[in-house]
């Protein structure tokens, strides 16, 4: 490796370097069931955005659980329409 960086653990094993690819977390928040949320996240501008929703304590076998709709427009992430409370994790990748 002639340029870039490498990070080793205490045992000398390479754990991360500048050839790796990753998504970084820019936002993590919760949205309640039956409510909506729209927020501007400037850090996502110009990057590849991945938004995941993780249901908080949803029912598995006793009632239906409607997922939220998620949309990204510019630097705004909008979440609405779900019956369950969810964690929203916004990840980005790019320069």
């Amino acid at each position: 490796m002639s340029f870039g960086f490498q990070i080793f653990d205490s045992g000398g094993t390479l754990r991360f370097d500048s050839t790796d690819v990753t998504y970084n977390q820019v936002a993590f928040y919760s949205v309640s069931g039956g409510s909506s949320d729209s927020r501007s996240i400037p850090q996502i501008g110009g990057k590849t955005v991945a938004v995941g929703q993780v249901m908080i304590d949803p029912p598995l076998l006793d009632r239906k659980a409607v997922a939220h709709n998620i949309s990204v427009s510019g630097t705004t992430v909008s979440v609405s329409g779900g019956s369950e409370s969810v964690y929203i994790i916004v990840l980005v990748r790019g320069s």
Binding site: T22, N24, Q25, S95
Partner: peptide, 15 residues
């Protein structure tokens, strides 16, 4: 990284 993507940043959070 080699693809000019930010992989560590004080404006973001690594997992």
């Amino acid at each position: 990284n080699d693809a000019n993507e930010v992989i560590i940043s004080s404006e973001l959070k690594n997992l």
